[in-house]
């Protein structure tokens, strides 16, 4: 099955960079520039997501809460440019699996994505 990753970031440079990076690693990447767009295009088969926290309109925390209601087993990661804007506890409470601060090494994101897919696939086998 195709491994799909959703990337939500309002900056086109970041979206494109992450698109290239995850595509290079063999993933299918879906991009959204806002939380609203993400909810609109989100498919049930997208199980790994990287969300920017500061977004125009609905923020990443609220987006994560909404996605959790539809996708309880998805692996959702926060990427933020300003760690103190949201507390770690807010991220946990919203249902994020982990948290990265910009600038983050792509290597870390690759490991997170790989581990996430492995975890989801293990669950599916059960």
């Amino acid at each position: 099955m195709e491994r799909k990753i959703l990337v939500v970031d309002d900056e086109v440079v970041i979206r494109e960079m992450l698109n290239k990076a995850f595509t290079k690693m063999g993933y299918k990447v879906v991009l959204a520039a806002s939380a609203e767009e993400a909810l609109e295009i989100l498919q049930p088969d997208t199980q790994v997501m990287f969300l920017d926290l500061k977004l125009p309109g609905m923020d990443g925390i609220e987006l994560c809460r909404r996605i959790r209601q539809i996708h309880p087993v998805a692996c959702i990661f926060a990427i933020t440019g300003y760690a103190s804007l949201f507390e770690l506890s807010d991220c946990r409470e919203a249902g994020f699996d982990d948290y990265f601060t910009k600038p983050v090494k792509l290597e870390m994101l690759f490991i997170a994505a790989q581990t996430a897919f492995e975890k989801i696939e293990r669950w599916k086998k059960k």
């Binding site: 990076a21 440019g81 300003y82 792509l106």
Partner: peptide, 17 residues
């Protein structure tokens, strides 16, 4: 920090790519 981390993320990401 917020303003700088965005471009830094792009620079570090693209150079790593």
């Amino acid at each position: 920090c917020h303003e700088l981390n965005q471009p830094l993320h792009a620079i570090s990401g693209y150079s790593e790519l």
